[in-house]
């Protein structure tokens, strides 16, 4: 089990706030830390990896202590068994795909390289340099490199957010397959609800440095406090007056819908659009 119980004073765009996170992750689990920009998601990953020191707390993987402020333990990143994939790939531009991956690998792992390259469809590209690869291909290289040392924990910091929709869906499947096949314990940072829903077994909803909700994606996102089954999260894009109504245009994951309401709402607000499951019609296309 991984225990992360840390506190750190942070400076956010609204001012100072305290990151205060206490969570336990089971070995082999796929957990996502979800939250808006500036909520402290990436900071948690960086503290687990040893790239940032908590003010106080403890981080451990089973019996292995990575950080313990009470006993002064703070292992450097290279002493922690952590794989880290960043949003911006972070590959060596002067090395081929194969060299980028082998650079991070133990000698005992070299036989595994070809197997993983085939799994993520990079085998035929292993002599190529990063600059000649697409964003999706570069991120696959970064992913393979991060697991070459059989890390205790794989940390993914919004690795797919810069990729287009189709490539992102494919890479989500590949990340899940790699997580399953190599029995990894994975922590993903994401602000994309469909991605979180597809990938994770457990979600931590972080807001201004505090855990607001923790549970399965269904518990965190779907089991709202309403019985309406036909309900979606959305963001208000436009409000116009019409007769006694406010006609509200809401973006629901790229689909725009209009709702007539008398509620006083604001553009930019996050809302739940809900209806009884008995109300919508279903029509064959």
């Amino acid at each position: 089990m991984i225990e992360v119980n840390v506190r750190k004073e942070l400076v956010g765009y609204k001012g100072n706030f305290t990151l205060d996170v206490n969570l336990k992750i089971e070995k082999g689990e796929f957990l996502t830390i979800f939250g808006k920009s500036g909520s402290g998601k990436t900071t948690v990953l960086r503290m687990i990896a040893g790239l940032l020191e908590p003010d106080e707390g403890i981080i451990r993987f089973g019996d292995k202590i990575y950080f313990d402020s009470s006993s002064g333990i703070n292992l450097p990143p290279q002493k922690r068994s952590v794989g880290f994939v960043f949003q911006n790939y972070a590959l060596f531009p002067n090395m081929t795909v194969y060299e980028n991956i082998v650079y991070a690998a133990d000698k005992s792992q070299l036989s595994k390289v070809d197997e993983i390259l085939k799994l993520v469809e990079l085998y035929d590209l292993k002599a190529r340099y990063p600059s000649s690869l697409s964003g999706g291909q570069q991120q696959r290289v970064a992913l393979v490199r991060s697991i070459m040392r059989n890390p205790d924990i794989l940390l993914l910091d919004e690795p797919l957010s810069a990729l287009d929709f189709t490539i992102r869906l494919k890479l989500q499947d590949e990340v899940k397959e790699i997580h399953r096949r190599y029995g990894l314990t994975t922590i993903l940072v994401s602000h994309d609800k469909p991605e979180v829903f597809k990938m994770s077994e457990k979600v931590v909803y972080l807001e201004e440095g505090k855990i607001r909700k923790i549970g399965t994606p269904r518990e965190v996102f779907i089991e709202k406090n309403l019985s309406g089954k036909f309900s979606f999260f959305g963001t208000i894009l436009d409000i116009r007056k019409s007769d006694v109504f406010n006609i509200v245009t809401v973006d629901i994951n790229g689909n725009l819908v209009e709702v007539a309401t008398v509620e006083d709402l604001n553009i930019g607000e996050e809302v739940i659009i809900g209806s009884k499951a008995f109300t919508p019609i279903v029509k064959r296309l």
Binding site: L226, G274, K276, F278
Partner: peptide, 8 residues
Amino acid sequence: PTNIILEI
């Protein structure tokens, strides 16, 4: 009855 939503 099919138009009432429950809120907790």
